[in-house]
Design a binder for these strands. Structure first.
Lengths: 338, 338
DNA sequence: AGAAAGAACTGAACCGGTTCAGTGAGGGAC
DNA sequence: GTCCCTCACTGAACCGGTTCAGTTCTTTCT
């Protein structure tokens, strides 16, 4: 079969233990012997068995990601594929793997984390889609599972966070609209239960207030196309109709755009709109969508790095702040109608 | 620490071996004893250690998926997230996990498969994005790694395939256009190197021939927006300009639509277009995009099932044929200009 | 010079399962 | 009554690493 540690030990004329020490860079072997052992290992083409290692060291050499989304809607979101790719760029280098779980139903999420722990599949998890008072924080603590969170949770969390603040992006979108002369700027927010839903709304509101405008045109939706349409419809029924709508993501903006067209409104002549995510198709919409472009790839690779460092006791516990997503102005924003 | 097989054996008054037999439903214990053992296990809350099992049984209890895509473009594709969710629905039920790998660079793909095998991370892999004469078939054979392929490869493959034929969808799109009166129907294809790129082109060509039309308006692109735009531009420069364009996916169609608008052409009044995938945003384009809707979720869950059955020796080797994706007619197709 | 400390390495236990050879009891055939 | 077979189960080896308690030899300190 495959070559084992015993083969290497025999070839190098030492004991199994010595080989283990040499491999892991631990004390207990002289530099000379270490080289001889590593030489023999190389010659024999030895790769230590991950399974044996896992068993004796109680480590999985893998990280987990639990995605709690309706599978049918998952394809909508441009975030995850890139984010996962980012995680992978880090893991591949470090000999770790990613175990991915999709929790469709609500109760399935907690069960997924429990299963990952009980089966010892992973050494830690990356917590995305953090919610206000996220119950998973307590769950992970109970399970004793190390983690890193995307953005700092509102609930007290002992885990390091990797933050990509959406404030600046949203603020500059709103400011951009104010500068164009808009005074009735609405926000179609995502689920406020998610901290990124909430923070986008807050950024929108704060920027309006800074400009002496009232942040009263708000409707909560769920980041999905359907509710994006409905929210847009409700805004149009108001007495105080908006001349600009800041959507919390591109898909809602896209659905809103479609609805506005159906109602005979021109974008941006009658209504300006902005999205968030800078989805690839955003630039091909008619008109091209002004959006805010984040960097999920960087977010993923950084989160994985922080978690691995944490596992190795090398992380200082500080949150990592990533560059803020930037506004990308395109054709969907213009001066308000006279 | 956690309760082990020895604890259960002691509690039930039998040996470790007996517990193992009882757990795995093997012969060697009487029904009475089996019940007693299972009872004791339940009482103690015993969960057999995946790691120990993996080591002694040489199995990983996990499947692998290697995605070879440029990470930046990965977010574009609505296929993978849903597909992965489908895989998960099957795996979660069977106690397996999914190990996901993203291979950014070209050489990284082979390395990924090798690593999964050498580290014993997975018991089998799902092969997506199958290419003509796909070199991975030989690689997997060399590595002795079981697999299932999405659609039947052109190269001889001993692996079972789970097929979702794109022929009918494309055919009915072309037929739909012919029925509307179009005679110059172009195809902007995806990479022909992928079997789904090739088969869509073939379906387009065959349907035209069946209707006595010449399939001469073909341009190969790479399934990406940029090349979708360029291909559209080239089609418009031809003497024999198309009045309809069948794109191999939605993102190219979307980019094409944008370009047509820029050129002052109206869709569908001047040019009809169709996509493929039925991305969520397709219905929100202006005009809404006629597309072909596949079912990645079903594809994923079925592929995982077939592979697991295969691993347990329960699969008969037959290919599985899934329902064909269907045409969804929307506003982007109409009669050709007079 | 003698004691103590440290470095280099060995041997065996251990992680928690699976599996196989072996044992003893019970039953059926002749 | 004897032989043989089957069934139910045990004990130990095994998977391939990690880790800890010892052993031996060298160095350092007083």
């Amino acid at each position: 079969m495959a070559v084992t540690i015993s083969d290497v030990a025999r070839a190098a004329g030492v004991s199994k233990g010595a080989v283990s020490y040499a491999l892991n860079g631990q004390a207990g072997v002289s530099e000379e012997t270490r080289q001889r052992i590593l030489g023999a290992a190389k010659e024999l083409g030895w790769r230590p068995s991950l399974r044996a290692r896992s068993l004796s060291s109680s480590k999985a050499y893998a990280l987990g990601l639990v995605v709690a989304r309706n599978p049918r809607l998952l394809g909508t979101d441009p975030f995850f594929p890139s984010f996962i790719a980012g995680i992978e760029t880090t893991l591949a280098d470090r000999g770790y793997s990613l175990v991915l779980t999709v929790a469709a139903k609500h109760g399935a999420e907690e069960a997924s984390y429990r299963r990952l722990v009980h089966e010892g599949r992973v050494d830690g998890v990356i917590l995305s889609d953090v919610r206000t008072d996220d119950p998973r924080i307590a769950l992970l603590l109970e399970l004793g599972l190390p983690a890193v969170t995307l953005n700092r949770p509102t609930a007290a969390s002992p885990f390091p966070a990797v933050c990509m603040d959406d404030t600046e992006g949203i603020s500059s979108a709103v400011q951009h609209l104010v500068d164009l002369g808009h005074t009735r700027i609405a926000h179609v927010g995502g689920t406020q239960h998610y901290i990124h839903g909430l923070s986008r709304r807050t950024a929108w509101a704060n920027t309006l207030k800074r400009n002496g405008l009232e942040p009263d045109l708000f409707i909560e939706a769920d980041f999905g196309a359907q509710q994006g349409t409905e929210a847009t419809a409700r805004l149009l029924q108001l007495d105080r109709k908006p001349t600009a709508i800041v959507y919390a993501n591109d898909i809602m903006a896209t659905a809103g755009l479609s609805y506005l067209h159906q109602q005979g409104l021109r974008v941006p002549a009658d209504v300006s709109i902005t999205g968030y995510d800078n989805t690839e198709y955003a630039q091909y919409l008619n008109p091209a969508l002004t959006s805010i472009g984040s960097d999920p790839l960087l977010w993923g690779s950084t989160a994985a790095q922080v978690l691995l460092n944490q596992l190795e006791g090398k992380h200082d516990g500080q949150d990592i702040i990533l560059p803020e997503p930037q506004l990308i102005v395109r054709g969907s924003t213009a001066e308000p109608p006279a």
